[in-house]
């Protein structure tokens, strides 16, 4: 069976390499001169100059970041409350509450996006960056909850009880003992929540005010045209670098979680 193991190994490597191929190709073509063909005609940095001078991109990037940060703070706070409640108290319907929390992860985003839009319009909300935030929090609570709850389920409440025998009240015990122990889990949850918001396209697209751009919406506007807008390739290089930084941070955080 040695040959079979070797076959599996080579197969895995090939597929993994293919996963990276579209990204590598994007970056290679970001240096291409010709904007009309998918053939490499000559090296240029032209696409990067255009990217740097495109204020719309940076505006969109800025919007993605600040919306992501607000969404992360709100959803992580709510998720901490929820996970604490579910792991620490027993009450009727706990299993139901737990599965309700998973629904936003399972329901396809396009359905969430459209129903939220209809809801907002019928209630007479006008669309704004805040409606985007409201929508993002509605699915990000669930992502953050899953991560924090997993961490909290493995946390021994005796730490907190020990703190209370030493004279801390419940709030102090939570703040001084539970929270620091859960910190790596919370950091991991925050990172995931941020990325889900920062990278979200569909829900943003449906609930944004007209003309308001985030990075994914900008990418969509460019990519959904026919042809090959090469400044998008230059933007891809930038996005890839940011993503690799996130991946690195995430790995560090996860190592912290394991420890």
């Amino acid at each position: 069976m040695k040959w079979f193991d070797r076959f599996l190994k080579i197969y895995t490597y090939i597929i993994l390499a293919l996963m990276y191929l579209p990204i590598v190709v994007l970056i290679i073509f970001s240096f291409n001169e010709s904007r009309s063909k998918v053939v490499f005609t000559g090296f240029t940095l032209e696409n990067y100059y255009r990217l740097v001078n495109n204020f719309m991109v940076w505006d969109a990037f800025y919007n993605s970041i600040w919306i992501g940060v607000v969404v992360t703070i709100v959803s992580v706070l709510l998720a901490i409350l929820m996970s604490y409640g579910v792991t620490r108290y027993s009450f009727r319907g706990k299993a139901i509450v737990d599965s309700i929390m998973l629904v936003p992860i399972i329901i396809p985003e396009i359905v969430e996006a459209l129903t939220l839009l209809v809801f907002l319009v019928i209630l007479g909300f006008s669309l704004s960056p805040y409606t985007i935030i409201i929508g993002h929090v509605a699915f990000d609570i669930s992502f953050a909850y899953v991560v924090i709850k997993a961490r909290m389920a493995g946390y021994d409440p005796q730490f907190e009880e020990a703190a209370r025998t030493l004279g801390a009240d419940e709030f102090k015990a939570f703040r001084k003992v539970t929270l620091p122990i859960l910190a790596p889990g919370i950091a991991a949850a925050a990172l995931i929540a941020f990325l889900e918001s920062y990278d979200d396209f569909i829900k943003t697209f449906f609930t944004r005010p007209p003309g308001f751009l985030t990075l994914p919406v900008y990418i969509w506007n460019m990519a959904s045209r026919r042809g090959f807008p090469l400044d998008l390739n230059a933007l891809a290089s930038f996005v890839v670098i940011i993503s690799l930084v996130f991946a690195y941070v995430r790995r560090r955080v996860e190592r912290g979680v394991l420890r």
Binding site: L215, A223, A236, V239
Partner: peptide, 12 residues
């Protein structure tokens, strides 16, 4: 690769 924007990967 899945950390890189989905739209960009499709575009790629």
């Amino acid at each position: 690769p899945f950390w890189i924007n989905f739209l960009l990967r499709v575009y790629g």
